[in-house]
Write a protein that binds this DNA or RNA. Structure first.
Length: 1009
RNA sequence: GCUCAAGUGGCGGAAUUGGUAGACGCGCUGGAUUCAAAAUCCAGUUCCUUUGGAGUGUGGGUUCGAUUCCCACCUUGAGUACCA
């Protein structure tokens, strides 16, 4: 243990001491009953991966920790918790490979995370830790799922209500008047019909209304992962995790009726303080478009007499007279029904061809226009003219109705399609040329050739067209959203089990008082041979309605014991509400007690990565709105302010390996051979630009191989090039010089560098046993931090070598929080040196160097300008600039030889959010018993910054030439006189008379002429 | 293609109610200290053809004055992708 007062800054001892102290005294425990104003600072909780943290991960945590500590100094009761999103795919993939239970590896990974987090000195309230994979936690995830099941969305009240209110309506009035968000095509029934339905029939109907429902849906199936994926888990047509192929497949799945909340999710964005880009991605994801639904009647053809209707959605009902064809998605249900015999072969061939194209091909190739004519015609609602009905894969089955009214003059895709298939392109825009391309803009159009819409603008024509369509009963105004209901089932093991069992195929909820339903044990984490999810392997996975327990599968009799659901919940289930659990983490009666919920309300500041824009952040908002509707919480939005921290990139290091190209064996085949020669960066540049130098090196190489190794092939003429090869950044110093010995003896590279010959800056071969001055420089490049690029920097090593305070300061010092920026360990010596200077300022050479001396004017000026700047910076989340400010302050106070306690004590408080360990240590050396975190933030006093004079920049035509110290209270006239009389002014003017003299008192003087 | 960011020394970056461009730090150069190295300290460090001139991606514009405001363009990064 640490004792006495060391003269040197012994960060390892100091940091360990205070981390232990904080943990032991629960210094950062948030109070639930408190008169202080609350402040809730949250980080997006991590998935505990096996790789542990690299220096990029803590960036956001450091920023939020600074803010949390700052808010404590400002008198707030701060909730700053941390936990783990501990269900997830990687642990399960690892389990499949090794047989290790995911719970075991997860526990190990969490231990590593915790150790790494602890050593950085975060002020987390660990007494509130949550883990999504903990049954005490997922009990409530299951509970929320049940609440969603027991709810429907009433459009009339614009909120979710208990399913009981819906049943009451059905019992008394049937469903004709119900305005709900529900499945399409629900049959209308009366009250008496409802009451006559069997229980199963009733349940089947209710399922179409519930906010979470079981339905056969077309899903994104990932064969490699053996599970379905949500839209936001697919990036560029492949799985976000692992990059595996994804195909469309119909499966019975739990879904969440998030589409019910589309409008509120959109509107709510205006109420929250998020970045515009993040709000924009959510807006795009929700994808609201306002327009009309229009129904086209199919003209009965020779083969069929049925009267089919084609409903379409359009944002441009004003262009309805420009329709010259219709296009259906190839998957559209009507296609097979309306295709004429003549066209059947062609249509079927086309459908087959498009089905074969993967989603990825379709996305990659948007230029090729394909389609087929069905042979059928639809009737134009107004002109009654026949319109040919085509199919084409540019129309998406999943959006709108899967069919479009094609207006080639107003939509480029329709235009291209019409051109390709020689379909007429009628022009309905007055004075607009459409011979080259469609005119898609809505502004400044005047509709023509459109009967009763002639002469109208987009807005007027849209209104009028909708009214006319409504009169015909063939359309109405409609708003469409791109946002689809979210698939909630995963065919995986390591996730929350559903509290669901099946009676005659109908899902039944387990009563909430029997929760949690714990994840069963399985012997293998793979799907069953019959293709069921891993839970299908569990032996004890049936629900007994008598004992209300999970029992052996063999007991299933479908009268009292029923099979349980085999899917598990997706990763976003547990993370959609965890911020509430921190408020009351151990409560076993409710997910969080009301008192805690009303005190802490919502998250004031949320920091995390932007990759969660359309997943976690949208789902959380959805669940919170739902919980509010049902009266469980009182807030509408979970995260008031949100900041995305930028990614920290790695600075990769490369050694230039010489590759030789030539015909080495006389076979006349040109080969490229990787030699054992590596060249230093400056020399590599030289041989590329200087043929003479290259020749010299070639000779050396040829000699090496032919003489020493008796390898004749290099004696022939050849050419050389430099191939950059990644090496570990650990072997490179601040001057980009390589530790050759270190690299050679690194076991991870094996024998790669055993025979390596390193050529120095000057072109000399570096020998390791002589102490020459030859150095070898690597080339560098900024890339994403990743193990394969050997540029990963572990915070453990940084903490050991420089300390957590240095790490914290440096991460902030790198640049603006929200920007991506490269990490380069070399630069950390700057902030580390600052901490040493700070230590020296307080400790002197022979012990505490603090006196009760009156602070000087300069001391106070330095202190107060620092208070002002740091406070402004923290409020603006500009942490990088306050680190500079601290450096300037310490430089100034050192130069001023300041020893005044009245200045040095408050300065520690300013710095403590950034560098909590060293400030806590110095604070206690100053005689304080209580933690520095309890100290009040210093008060800024502008009086200390008042100046009597100003060093005016004197510019000529806007260019500053010299400065002049003048009193601040000097009048404009006097300033002009003084400046004009100055010898440097006279010299500048060279006899010219200035046209104008601009004087801004306290700012500048500009002489024009 | 569309949307949103961002372009400033060798590097990370600072400066925005328009007013001394390059703060702070890294690196580099020179010096002190040292047997030597590390560490520490001091000085210098945008560029150039240097009694001066140019300069914040490029070209224009507004202004006494533009990194900051306006217009056009270029480049890079992120997101999104046939959404009717």
């Amino acid at each position: 243990m640490y004792s006495g007062i060391p003269m040197n800054y012994n960060f390892n001892e100091i940091e360990k001491k205070w981390q232990d102290h904080w943990a032991k005294n629960q210094t950062f425990r948030a109070k639930n009953n408190c008169d202080q104003p609350k402040y809730y600072v949250l980080d997006m909780f991590p998935y505990p991966s096996g790789a542990g943290l690299h220096v990029g991960h803590p960036l956001g945590y450091i920023a939020s920790d600074i803010y949390a500590r700052y808010k404590r100094h400002k008198g707030f009761n701060v909730l700053h918790p941390q936990g783990y999103d501990s269900f997830g795919l990687p642990a399960e993939q690892y389990a499949i490979q090794t047989g290790q239970h995911p719970a075991v590896t997860t526990e190990e990974n969490i231990k590593t995370y915790r150790r790494q987090l602890d050593q950085i000195g975060f002020s987390f309230d660990w007494s509130r830790e949550v883990r999504t994979s903990d049954p005490a936690y997922y009990k409530w995830t299951q509970w929320i799922f049940i609440q969603l099941f027991e709810s429907w969305y009433n459009n009339s009240s614009d909120k979710a209500e208990s399913i009981d209110t819906l049943i009451t309506v059905f019992e008394t009035d049937g469903n004709a008047k119900v305005d709900a968000v529900c499945d399409d095509e629900i049959e209308v029934f009366t009250a008496s019909e409802w009451n006559a339905f069997s229980i199963e029939q009733q349940q089947e109907i209710l399922l179409k209304y519930r906010l979470t429902y079981l339905a056969e849906t077309e899903v994104n199936w990932c064969p490699a992962l053996g599970t379905v994926l949500a839209n936001d888990e697919i990036v560029n047509g492949v799985s976000e995790r692992g990059g595996h192929a994804v195909i469309r497949k119909k499966m019975t799945q739990w879904s969440m009726r998030i589409s019910a909340y589309a409008e509120r999710l959109l509107q709510g964005l205006d109420q929250i303080d998020w970045t515009d880009s993040l709000k924009e991605s959510q807006r795009n994801w929700i994808g609201k478009s306002v327009g009309a639904s229009v129904t086209f009647n199919v003209i009965p053809n020779d083969t069929g007499s049925a009267k089919y209707k084609i409903p379409v959605f359009t944002t441009r009902p004003d262009t309805i007279f420009g329709v010259s064809f219709m296009t259906l998605a190839p998957e559209h249900d009507l296609v097979s029904k309306i295709t004429t015999d003549n066209q059947r072969a062609e249509v079927e061939a086309y459908i087959k061809a498009t089905a074969k194209r993967s989603e990825r091909d379709r996305m990659a190739d948007v230029k090729t226009i394909t389609g087929a004519f069905t042979g059928s015609y639809a009737e134009h609602p107004f002109t009654k003219e026949p319109i040919p009905v085509w199919i084409g894969d540019y129309v998406l089955a999943g959006y709108g109705t899967g069919a479009v009214m094609s207006v080639p003059c107003g939509d480029q895709r329709d235009y291209d399609f019409a051109n390709h298939f020689n379909i007429p392109i009628p022009n309905i825009f007055e004075g607009i040329d459409i011979s080259e391309e469609a005119y898609g803009a809505k502004d400044n159009v005047i509709i023509a050739n459109s009967d009763f819409l002639n002469g109208l603008s987009y807005k007027e024509a849209t209104k009028k067209a909708i009214v006319a369509l409504e009169k015909l009963n063939q359309g109405e105004g409609k708003t469409n959203y791109r946002l689809r209901d979210a698939v909630f089932s995963r065919q995986r093991y390591w996730g929350e089990p559903f509290p669901v069992y099946y009676v005659n195929g109908m899902p039944q909820m387990i009563d909430t008082k029997h929760l949690p339903i714990r994840l069963p044990e399985v012997e293998k984490y793979l799907p069953t041979e019959t293709g069921e999810p891993p839970l299908g392997r569990a032996d004890v996975w049936a629900w007994c309605t008598e004992s209300n327990t999970v029992v052996d599968n063999e007991k299933v009799n479908n009268t009292t014991v029923f099979p349980l659901e085999l899917n598990t919940m997706p990763g976003w289930a547990g993370s959609s509400w965890y911020f509430f659990r921190y408020m009351d983490p151990t409560n076993d009666d409710v997910f969080a007690r009301e008192k805690a919920l009303t005190y802490w309300e919502n998250v004031d500041l949320y920091i995390g990565g932007s990759e969660h824009a359309t997943g976690h952040l949208l789902y959380s908002r959805f669940w919170v709105k739902f919980l509010k509707d049902r009266g469980f919480v009182s807030i509408e939005e979970p995260f008031k302010k949100l900041i995305n921290q930028g990614m920290i990139l790695g600075t990769s290091a490369f050694v230039g390996r010489i590759v030789a190209t030539g015909d080495f064996d006389g076979s006349e085949d040109v080969q490229t051979i990787h030699t054992d020669f590596f060249v230093s960066k400056p020399y590599a540049d030289l041989i590329i630009s200087d043929a003479e130098k290259a020749k010299q090196l070639m000779e050396i190489i040829a000699n090496h191989y032919s003489v020493e190794n008796k390898d004749q092939k290099f004696a022939r003429p050849f050419t050389i090039g430099v191939s950059p090869t990644h090496v570990k950044v650990q072997y490179v110093n601040a001057s980009d010089e390589l530790d050759i010995q270190g690299l050679k003896s690194d076991s991870e590279f094996g024998d790669d560098y055993k025979d390596a010959i390193f050529v120095s800056d000057t072109g000399a071969i570096i020998t390791l046993d002589t102490d020459s001055d030859d150095t070898f420089k690597v080339s560098r490049e900024v890339e994403k931090m990743s193990k394969s690029k050997y540029n990963v920097v572990n915070p453990d090593a940084i903490c050991e070598q420089y300390g957590a305070d240095s790490l914290r300061l440096y991460e902030m010092f790198l640049g603006p929080l929200e920007q991506a920026k490269p990490w380069n360990t070399a630069g950390i010596t700057g902030v580390h040196g600052f901490l040493k200077k700070l230590w020296k300022l307080y400790m002197g050479d022979s012990g505490l160097n603090i006196t009760d001396a009156e602070p000087s004017k300069d001391n106070l000026k330095t202190l107060h300008k620092t208070i002002k700047k740091v406070e402004e910076d923290i409020e603006n989340f500009s942490f990088n600039t306050s680190v500079s400010t601290f450096m300037i302050a310490v430089n100034e106070l050192t130069a001023q030889k300041c020893t005044s306690k009245a200045v040095l004590e408050p300065f520690l408080v300013l710095l403590s959010p950034y560098a909590p360990h060293i400030t806590e240590e110095l604070w206690s050396l100053l005689g304080h018993e209580a933690s520095i975190s309890t100290a009040a933030f210093p008060q800024f006093d502008a009086n200390h910054l008042v100046e009597s004079s100003k060093n005016y920049p004197i510019s000529f035509n806007g260019k500053m030439k010299f400065t002049l110290e003048l009193p601040l209270d000097m009048s404009k006239d006097d300033i002009e006189k003084t400046v004009m009389a100055h010898e440097k002014t006279i010299a500048q003017l060279e006899g010219r008379t200035p046209k104008k003299v601009i004087i801004v008192p306290g700012k500048i003087v500009n002489i024009v002429g």
